[in-house]
């Protein structure tokens, strides 16, 4: 019963990821795609959490923090690129 619930939730999140991939492909503007990619990264965290319960192992739990950090850095980088056209600013005078 408990495993059945877990599989149902896994299906829900997989459907959510498919919907977000639709938004990534179709999205009329670039920020739409970035929003959807951010959501994909966070959903990946959820999938890893549920998989580690299904497999009854705590070995994957370190990866959760790692993917959370990577998704955040990716989103910040994209946002900065969209706004300024560069990611790392070299000239410190214009701060």
């Amino acid at each position: 019963m408990f495993d059945f619930v877990l599989y149902i939730t896994l299906l829900c999140i997989s459907l959510a990821m498919v919907g977000l991939v639709y938004r990534v492909i179709k999205g009329p503007s670039t920020p739409d795609r970035v929003v959807a990619l951010d959501g994909l990264g966070i959903n990946l965290v959820a999938i890893i959490a549920i998989l580690s319960i299904i497999l009854r192992t705590s070995a994957f739990l370190d990866i959760i923090l790692l993917i959370g950090i990577l998704a955040f850095i990716g989103t910040v980088t994209f946002a900065k690129f969209l706004e300024k056209g560069v990611i790392l600013e070299r000239d410190r005078d214009n701060l």
């Binding site: 149902i8 939730t9 829900c12 999140i13 459907l15 959510a16 959820a46």
Partner: peptide, 12 residues
């Protein structure tokens, strides 16, 4: 876990 999954689906 179920409520979390449903919320994620609703977000999509």
């Amino acid at each position: 876990i179920v409520v979390g999954g449903l919320l994620t689906l609703a977000a999509t």
